[in-house]
Design a protein around this nucleic acid. Structure first.
Lengths: 347, 347
DNA sequence: ATGAAAGCGCTAACAG
DNA sequence: CTGTTAGCGCTTTCAT
């Protein structure tokens, strides 16, 4: 690993000249330029940037903190963020917290000591946000992703959870299901709370009274979906449908149903917000709220870099991304309605 | 963002003392230690490490280059690598190549200029490996992952593809399927080649002649699985089973079959190597070769750090990780055999 | 036990 | 046009 000094020496010029030749900062004579080029080739010199980072206080590195890349909802986000970052010359450092607050703290710390310019955060659920505040205080820009971190005012890019959840449940209701259960995410997370609100709104507008017995709090992980799915399947009075608040849990639910021989949607319909692992085409019967994850990552990264570069100033803004509903395969009840009223077929 | 100098000034000591107090390099009197601590608190000083990296030529950053994190095979690998790296104080920078050689080159370049200590590489398929050689030459350690990069001799951690593929196909044969097609990966990739070899070996040992018409080369992506699945489904003489060389393609195949109303395994059995998106429990009929992805990532990272730190020296070693076969649900042919020969039930 | 000062690789002023 | 040099923030000798 040769340095710029060695190159200068070998080319018989000063380091300033090498630097200039390299980056075109100033005109360098044809001859010297060639000598420098030769020296660089000979020495296989490859300029490093960490030395200037010391001076210019800009690393062009961004952090991306996710709960768990293994949850298929996140890889797309990462791609979106990475593509945008890469385009603009930033390097993206992605890390998983496993939903563990202390791990999040460690990661933020590691990122801080590396002086990243900004961080995209899909925070662990904890309420201790001191590490975030401190980092912001220190000049690191944050943009929240998927979920806002409570008590911190930053930009954010996330799903319009209330409307999404509402339209999802509304769709079920539109198919004449009335006893609709919900498996929520951890309710201290904003996204979980909002989806739950959407559920409530949909019921309300349909004049259905919310039945507390049909509300189950999960934790966004498969195990809890599985557990609650079993519970649900075995209820004395089983609901007609269930709205599962994320894809991973939905998977657990479907598995539970399969184990118990419960057919869906014949015996119980399932709706979920996307990030359904694998490909939803293989689960045609599940109504899903499709999240444009790539776009979420992409826009969040763009926003972050705009802040970092000072292109964007002013109050934090929260961008709500619209989801789209992908109706499940025709479900029995609905099919029956259709038969008696063909005009509805277009919906 | 205050610097160590400001801290020193505020505490009325020298920077050396601050540094010593901070890292316990040398004894510092109780009093000064307290003054320093106070100054640090007041100024919210947070030591950065990039300045020393300039000097010590060690960044404790590792790169992880993947084709596409969106392929569910890779997130686990990333977790494995990240967990190990984090434990040992390294930061992992993960990037996607999209199987594009030029993108791989750009990433390696970005990583090099940031002076990462080492790189975990699941290479893009191209044969132009100049950028890798150059980076190695420059002192960056490489460990290959999942697939060796042709023509470069480095350590590697990857599946025992030949045996894996063989046992997978052998299993099909054991169920009395004889006309078994294969959808391979891109055959310039070693892993694809090896799985194909496993297929051949299994046929050979069973005395089945390889039928070139049953060999289809895919590219490890879903679209190609879908395409070839359709093709296969429509053959005048449809094979009885198909061995699909990765999970994503298998998904495409299953989708194609579903679209065409072809039932599996009744009409055609499917076996695949894991990384089947979602959860295989939802595809109980597919025989899968389970890859311990987490372990692959974990071991590769450990190996890389051992090299970086000089704990491991000597010739490159390739670690082959064993896969395990998870038999698909009882398939018709096999079930018939069982009925007439109960003793086989234990297999 | 403390302070002073030399660098690390590189860029950016500033002189010539 | 080209060379010199002063830092960037931090650790680490080396004196004191």
């Amino acid at each position: 690993m040769s340095t710029i000094v060695e190159v200068a020496k070998r080319a018989g010029v000063s380091v300033g000249t090498v630097s200039n030749a390299l980056r075109g900062t100033a005109r360098v004579s044809q001859e010297l330029r060639e000598r420098v080029a030769a020296a660089i080739r000979d020495l296989e010199y490859y300029p490093g940037r960490i030395s200037d980072e010391v001076k210019i206080k800009q690393t062009c590195m961004l952090g991306l903190i996710l709960p768990d890349i293994t949850n298929p909802f996140f890889p797309e986000i990462m791609r979106g963020a990475e593509d945008r970052a890469f385009e603009r010359g930033y390097l993206l450092v992605t890390a998983n917290t496993d939903e563990q607050l202390d791990r999040e703290q460690q990661i933020v710390s590691a990122l801080r000591s590396r002086r990243v310019d900004g961080i995209l955060l899909a925070g662990a659920s904890g309420k201790n946000t001191h590490h975030i505040r401190a980092a912001i205080q220190a000049g690191i820009v944050f943009v929240c992703l998927d979920r806002m971190t409570a008590g911190i005012k930053t930009d954010g890019v996330l799903l319009d959870n209330v409307h999404g959840g509402q339209s999802c449940v509304r769709h079920l209701i539109g198919q004449d299901y009335r006893e609709i259960a919900i498996i929520t995410g951890p309710l201290q997370l904003q996204s979980a709370k909002e989806r739950y609100q959407g559920y409530q709104a949909a019921l309300r507008e349909a004049g259905i009274k919310l039945a507390p017995a049909l509300v189950f709090e999960g934790d966004y992980r498969k195990e809890s979906g599985h557990l609650l799915g079993r519970k649900l399947a075995r209820m004395r009075r089983r609901p007609e449908a269930v709205f599962v608040c994320n894809g991973v849990m939905a998977l657990g639910v479907l598995q539970a149903f399969e184990e118990l021989g419960l057919r869906s949607p014949e015996e119980i319909a399932v709706a979920t917000v996307d990030d359904l692992p694998g490909d939803s085409l293989l689960h045609p019967k599940v109504t899903t709220l499709v999240q444009p994850s790539y776009e979420i990552g992409s826009r969040a990264a763009a926003l972050l870099m705009d802040r970092v570069e000072g292109k964007l100033t002013g109050a934090p803004q929260v961008i709500r991304i619209a989801s789209t509903l992908r109706a499940g395969e025709l479900e029995p009840k609905h099919a029956a309605i259709l038969a008696s009223n063909p005009s509805k077929a277009r919906n």
